[in-house]
Computed example of a mutant assay.
Amino acid sequence: MLTGLHIAVIGGDARQLEVIRKLTDLDAKLSLIGFDQLDHGFTGASKEQIDEVDFTEIDAIILPVAGTNSEGEVDTIFSNEKVVLTNELMSKTPEHCTIYSGISNNYLDGLVDSTNRKLVKLFERDDVAIYNSIPTVEGTIMMVIQHTEMTIHSSNVVVLGMGRVGLSVARSFAALGANVRVGARKSEHLARIFEMGMKPFQLSDLEQEVQDIDVCINTVPHQIVTASVISKMPPHTLIIDLASKPGGTDFRYAEKRGIKALLAPGLPGIVAPKTAGQIVANVLTQLLKEDVLDRKGNA
């Protein structure tokens, strides 16, 4: 149980509703900021404006997956209120106050450094990333079906990157009968690709590997699908970029060449917000029990 914890949930999309539901079930006291247009009510949770919250009593702050923008503004789907997380607000929180976000940026990193607060980036955790790869794969399959005129079975698919998402994507497309090639840099990743029955190749050979493909799925978070690479692709190729914004594809050149290229970060929140929210909620509640309750008790 999370009895005795006062948590501020600031902004977010439908995934946050599952987080709120789980936290209220565990008896946490919640201040919901950026939810004034939400019809649903939660016992033990109150909708408040950010200037109405007493941050001296806040034990934890839960931000959306994207955290803040470069000016500290938090995205609020369920409100028109402009919500900005400032140094002044953070300085009011108790020393044990912990901030949870999916990812971070220079603003958020600077904020926690200047106020000496702890920041937990959930999407850097292996467990969250692996769980999230499940709806990511399903969403990717959906997009390929929607935007191509052929079956996945027997199509030529290139997956770039052999991280937690790339591994799940490659295995799933292979299971559907696609001819899957996977580009990676590390020798151990190339060996694992071979062991799984797929064709490995060095990312440095990407231009040679895309000349007969139907689908290119990128998970590498820097520009790797360059104009030079795109110029070697057949005109019907579909590019799906799963890397975080701005992705790893030269979208301008793809459009110029007439190749459909789709940036699709955050697929779990789009195709399966309930499941994606439950994934975050389950990990969050465990972290709150292990970390914040102990730190508060020792404060």
Rank of each mutant, 00 (worst) to 15 (best):
D39C: 08
V112E: 04
P273V: 08
P234L: 12
L23C: 12
P246M: 12
A261R: 03
M196N: 10
Q146W: 00
G139T: 07
A254W: 06
H147S: 10
L284S: 02
G297D: 07
L160I: 14
N132P: 07
G44S: 10
L263I: 13
V157L: 12
K47A: 09
K29S: 14
Y253Q: 08
H147F: 14
V144Y: 04
R185L: 09
N87F: 11
S168T: 10
E73H: 11
K47S: 06
L89V: 11
D36F: 06
L85T: 05
R171I: 11
Y107Q: 01
F42V: 06
R15G: 00
G269P: 01
T68A: 05
T285N: 09
R171E: 12
E18S: 15
A281D: 07
V169E: 01
T136E: 08
F78A: 06
M162C: 11
D13R: 02
A272D: 04
E57D: 13
P246H: 10
G102F: 06
Q208H: 14
S168A: 15
A227R: 15
N179A: 09
G248W: 03
A60S: 11
L2C: 07
I134G: 01
N80L: 09
R181K: 15
I99H: 01
V53M: 04
S70L: 10
I7H: 04
K296I: 05
A178E: 01
L160N: 03
S114W: 01
L30D: 00
V182F: 04
N69A: 12
M150Q: 15
G277K: 00
G247M: 05
D291F: 03
S31R: 00
G34H: 04
Y100A: 06
N69Y: 09
E57C: 09
A272H: 05
I99K: 00
V165I: 15
N156Q: 15
V182W: 02
E195H: 11
G102Y: 04
V229P: 00
P64K: 02
V112N: 05
G110L: 05
T86I: 08
T115G: 00
L122Y: 03
V83W: 03
Q49N: 12
V112H: 04
L293Y: 08
V120S: 05
E209V: 13
S155I: 02
D109A: 13
N179E: 10
D51A: 11
M90H: 00
H153R: 14
M1Q: 12
D126P: 06
G34D: 05
Q202H: 14
T93G: 03
N80T: 13
D212N: 13
A175N: 12
H147L: 12
I193V: 15
L38T: 10
